[in-house]
Design a protein around this nucleic acid. Sequence first.
DNA 1: GAGACATCGGGACAATTGTCCTTTCTTAAA
DNA 2: TTTAAGAAAGGACAATTGTCCCGATGTCTC
Lengths: 190, 190
Amino acid sequence: MIRINKKFLALIESLLENPAYPNVITEHIFEAGDVILKQNSKVNNVYIVKEGITKCYLTEDTGKDFVQEFFGPGEIFGEVEIFSEAYSFCSIEATTDGSLFKISHTDFAELLDKNKVLNWLMLKSLASKVKYKAIRHSFNQSHNTETNLKRLESEDQNIYNLIPKKDLANYLGVTERNLNRAINSLKESS
Amino acid sequence: MIRINKKFLALIESLLENPAYPNVITEHIFEAGDVILKQNSKVNNVYIVKEGITKCYLTEDTGKDFVQEFFGPGEIFGEVEIFSEAYSFCSIEATTDGSLFKISHTDFAELLDKNKVLNWLMLKSLASKVKYKAIRHSFNQSHNTETNLKRLESEDQNIYNLIPKKDLANYLGVTERNLNRAINSLKESS
DNA sequence: GAGACATCGGGACAATTGTCCTTTCTTAAA
DNA sequence: TTTAAGAAAGGACAATTGTCCCGATGTCTC
């Protein structure tokens, strides 16, 4: 639900201070609601969240938004487009205030080539995304909204304070109406 | 639906003949129905499909199977477990007869470290998986079975000959009964 | 406080999907 | 050809989810 990657963040921060790579990594702040990356736009940079939470979502032809994941500190986005050489397939929007690091694709590709630690952490990060996406999709398809919500609650007790209801519904792939029903029946059963 | 990766296959085949890496890559045949990898088991190798089709699926606590993807020539599996250092999170079963290449995790990690072309193709392969999983999950959640099936048909006209109905249903995350309904209403509307 | 306005939750009904079980189709053997 | 057995398809009903809309609640301005 809210992903973090402390090792990745630590490495990026250490590279920031490394004189061997001047002006490669820049830091930027964002405010809740800011659109950081737009679906179907050209991506020229990768971004690593330093502080705060961003929402990664995909807008369908039906107008519905589907939330892929919430990215917290250390999570990277805009990297898939380096390897798939295509326009962005999702949008990124700030859920809270925060800050991030930005690296151009060309610089990042060079870093990947030269820095074995980064290279390995990148492989780990991508593999982790593959894995949690697989598990999540499978679970969601195999259970009803109430069970899916229960799983989220057990992952993070604080979701109702951190994530707006609308986004929760879009993460579960259901309507707000249906999410409300699930919340009520969980309340009753406790 | 049925993934292939020609560049990856070509590279593995060239490594197979490379005298610098003796006995690292072995070739094995499989028959339809063979279980190649079992969920929750320790994984010590990566596998690259040479010929044929395998099914990657996850079994839920409810007993339902959910098919992640069908892997054709050049697709690799068992690699995520190198990076996540965990037991396999899905099973792999042969859908058709075929063959595959096998490389131990330690050998493969060494290859990733030494061979830049392999390293890059690995990053591309993982990124591609992240991308198509994201797009697929979003689409499936946002549309009904009929629309999801129509999308599959447009991807691959031949699905009904290649994939058993039961697997198609498990790929869409619905019951066979419901898949039949969707097939019928698509027939009527054409 | 009154009125205008937006937001949120939930009722009522419709559409979709799941479950269970019967019917139909296939295949093989006599 | 007939018959039996197993597999596949579909009917009937139940559960889940979506859509539409109304009323309650909160907020802002005057």
